[in-house]
Amino acid sequence: MPARPNAILAARRDNLHKRARIIQQIRAFFTQCAYLEVETPHRIPCNAPEEYILPQESGTAYLHTSPELCMKRLLAAGYTHIFQLCRCWRKDERGRKHLPEFTMLEWYCSPGNYLDLMCTCEELFCALVPEETLVWQGTTFQVKSPFERITLSQAFTRYAPISLQEAMQDDIFEEVYTDHVEPQLGTDRPTFVYDYPTDMAALARCRPDAPHLAERVELYLGGLELANGFSELVDPIEQRQRFYAALKCMQPEFPERMMPEPFLSELRHMPPSAGIALGVDRLVMLLTDAATIDAVVAFTPEEL
């Protein structure tokens, strides 16, 4: 038996208390907005094929990387407002802002589009930060509607030495984005970045007026990526093509080229909808003034 109680775990007590309260507030917010809380299986036969998200194997199945597919099947079955708070798993993701097992909040509404998601995000954040200001890592942020809105292309023009198009052509999108753009997002108030190239949004609907762009939105505060949402793609033929394109590029370690067939076959019943995933651990980091994700969870994988 160790001589002393585990000081690292004990030091997180305040943050874990705040975390529990934040999760209660999230539940209360969505319940009040007449969303139905759902639980979908964590262990599934197939995730949505996405080029850079590696699922964790679990026997012959996989742990879900997000509850997206099952929640969309509920939308296709006629559910209109649903949310879920659950654990998700993404293999090999570990850093100051990443855990391979983390907590996700996802919500979907039908009818709806990505503009509706932005409004709901604003309402949720205002409910979580009633004092309208937030201090994180020495910076004070204003948290009140409306949040800043900027397209991805504008963000590159404003903050990066080269354009979005050039960065993609030279295959250095991630490098330029993380070095120049991301640190400038949400420096004094929350910022929505929206309208992504279709290649970067496998499950999002294209803009009717600009088919090379997808209706995808990301929420940032203090350079921290908090949420990612779409106007959902509801065309099963196009969705299959997008999945196929993602599978073709996928890393060789992905063992099987599988398609989520039940999702694809039910997709044609899905009405125009919008859905978004928010990283709860990162939200808690902001609201507890924590520098790393480690400080807001009871255990990190290394402590098990």
């Binding site: 996405e50 080029e51 850079y52 998200i53 090999d92 993701e93 570990r94 850093g95 100051r96 802002k97 990443h98 999108f173 991630e174 490098e175 984005y177 993380t178 991301e182 970067m200 949004a201 496998a202 990301e218 990526e225 990612n228």
Partner: peptide
């Protein structure tokens, strides 16, 4: 060392 991964992009 730092692990960075923007949204749906690839890990750095």
């Amino acid at each position: 060392f730092d692990f960075i991964k923007p949204g749906k992009g690839q890990a750095l």
